[in-house]
Design a protein around this nucleic acid. Structure first.
Lengths: 183, 183
DNA sequence: ATGATATGTTGACGCAGACAACATAACGCT
DNA sequence: AGCGTTATGTTGTCTGCGTCAACATATCAT
């Protein structure tokens, strides 16, 4: 708590990262919809307007959180051998559901935050490379991404009834093949 | 406008459906996040508290909108021969992006609104039946749903670069096969 | 040292969700 | 027809939030 406080109380000294860290917790606890700048400021021990020195508005804070998320996701994927990449994707979504929803929930206008698109592309690249040897890699990659992405969403929403989640994930992802030619 | 007004002005007479209709427009125009009960009331020509006679709170109104959405989606799917069901799913998402996001955006706690799960199950059934003859229909259906669902989401977020959208949709959906046995 | 700049605070405004109290219309019963 | 009950709409109020403006204090370059 209150990591690296300066001796004087007036300036926090490390506010931006502290805000992002606290916001990350609040995000997973209550979801993006009820993440309030004022509540965040309270929780960080600063005045209700301090966050505005580091983020122009609430949306920009959420965008920063989402960008963090894309970076995390990219790292997770790149560390995986192609076969298990899909499972890693789903695992990320299940471990950080609110972060995942923020990244893909449409709350943030991607056009307004180029960093977001860049970060997302970065994560996507990990998937695309795994399909490099197929005849139409961009199609297979798009389909694979769609599959794991939709599966993650539907799992989060509780739309599937299953006893053993890990097993179910492997079975569903395993049932899909990526053909050479489109119908 | 002001359809079926009673002669007297005090009671609207048809408020609940009118609210849902107006809310549907506002939803597609500005997204669920900025859909305000007060704004809705203004637009419907009633006082700021009138909606509370028909919905216990904002969340309940959104849940009703989402339930409508699931019903619409179900109808769309049921009207399609299995092969084109996937395209119909994507088409729905693209035509009513905000409705789609509301339905699957995680804003609404499904546990709190059983009607939502029921309505969603109804739409899902259409997909499940299309895979009835496969050896593990529930797996294939789950995978197919995941594919079209994730694809819809990613298209909405603008994560794919493509010139001809319809063609791209057919190509991506066509590249996937559902195997008999899981790996 | 000093002036510019970065960072944090206080105060204010408008808007939204939600509750309570009140007003009016519709409906059932006799 | 008359009357009490209930459904539906309104006014008033409270609290919290996002955001802007003005002010305070610390940091840094010269």
């Amino acid at each position: 708590m209150t990591t690296l406080r300066r001796k004087t109380a007036y300036h926090h000294g490390n506010l931006r990262p502290a805000l992002l860290r606290t916001a990350g917790k609040l995000l997973e606890d209550q979801g993006a919809a009820s993440l309030a700048l004022r509540g965040l400021a309270r929780r960080a021990g600063v005045s209700h307007n301090a966050p505005y020195r580091h983020f122009p508005n609430r949306e920009a804070l959420l965008a920063a959180l989402a960008a963090e998320g894309f970076a995390m996701l990219g790292e997770r994927l790149r560390g995986q051998p192609g076969r298990e990449m899909g499972e890693a994707y789903v695992r990320f979504a299940l471990e950080q559901p609110q972060r995942f929803r923020l990244m893909f929930g449409g709350l943030l206008p991607m056009a307004k935050y180029p960093q977001l698109r860049t970060a997302a592309q970065g994560a996507y690249q990990a998937l695309v490379e795994a399909f490099k040897d197929l005849p139409r890699p961009e199609l297979a990659a798009a389909a694979a991404w769609s599959l794991v992405h939709g599966f993650s969403h539907l799992l989060l929403d509780g739309h599937f009834a299953h006893s053993d989640r890990e097993h179910f994930v492997r079975e569903v992802l395993g049932v899909v093949r990526f053909a050479q030619r489109a119908a």
